[in-house]
């Protein structure tokens, strides 16, 4: 579904990504992990065509560079790590923004656009919030609203940058389960960055470990989440034990520096 090869990005004077390859099949869940500043967010933005880059990005068999923004937005939806939320906008209007690629430039949203948006709000437990102003929500509520916007886009591929950071335990599970259900039911392709390595290992089919702009490891969770790789690239001392379903669970060890 998404094929990235030899992707390099320069921001200002710094080379933020160097020769990154990435490939996600339709219906697959890829989690990008890596320490702060590794280039995870930049990688997602490059796939969205939001930063200038070298190398090629192919989405659904088509070179992304040749896609009109509108067509690209129908293929890939993106929820940024730090979205900017217009404080006065209502939750419903904000989620409706996700329908932008389907609304004619000077036109207005159709009945179907409203229906899709309403059903997404319902699935995310947000129906009661529809008339609330976005500026009056808690951090976790905001994060769900942003996810609602991305889901309203009805794109076959979903790029989520840290979708669970502000969520409580229950909502983390709810959001990731929802994404997983959509993936299974509609064959959605999912790429997320996730700081919680255990969560990443639980939900993703494959992990991509980025460090300092390089893809240093990729593969199924058990291959990437090893004490050696995590210790080396996160500069952390951890113990990794097999968890439910044989997927690795990462424990931080106390008293280590």
């Amino acid at each position: 579904m998404i094929e990235v090869s030899a992707l390099s990005v320069r921001l200002g004077e710094r080379e933020v990504l160097t020769g990154v390859d990435l490939s996600v099949r339709r219906g697959e869940w890829l989690a990008i992990i890596g320490p702060n500043g590794a280039g995870k967010s930049t990688l997602l933005k490059a796939v969205m065509g939001l930063v200038r880059h070298r190398g090629t990005v192919v989405v659904d068999g088509r070179a992304a560079a040749t896609l009109r923004p509108r067509d690209r937005a129908r293929l890939v939806a993106y929820a940024p790590q730090a979205p900017s939320l217009p404080p006065d906008m209502t939750v419903l209007d904000y989620a409706l923004l996700g329908r932008t690629p389907y609304i004619p430039y000077l036109g207005r949203e159709s009945r179907r656009d409203r229906e899709v948006t309403a059903s997404v709000l319902e699935r995310l437990d947000l129906t009661g919030f529809a008339a609330r102003r976005v500026g009056e929500l808690s951090g976790g509520e905001r994060q769900r609203v942003v996810l609602a916007r991305a889901l309203a886009q009805e794109a076959p591929a979903l790029l989520l940058d840290e979708p669970t950071t502000a969520l409580d335990l229950g909502h983390q599970q709810q959001v990731l389960e929802l994404v997983d259900r959509l993936r299974v039911a509609d064959g959605l392709t999912v790429v997320t960055t996730l700081h919680d390595l255990t969560l990443a290992g639980q939900y993703a089919d494959r992990l991509l470990l980025l460090a300092d702009g390089h893809a240093v490891a990729t593969g199924p969770p058990a291959q990437v989440l090893t004490g050696k790789l995590v210790g080396e690239h996160f500069d952390a001392r951890v113990e990794i034990t097999p968890g439910p379903g044989g997927r690795p669970v990462v424990h931080l060890l106390r008293g280590a520096t």
Partner: peptide, 16 residues
């Protein structure tokens, strides 16, 4: 209204 989420996000929504 779409532009009010900023250039980057507006672009990701398919707007130039």
């Amino acid at each position: 209204d779409v532009l009010s989420v900023g250039d980057e996000e507006a672009t990701s929504l398919g707007l130039r």
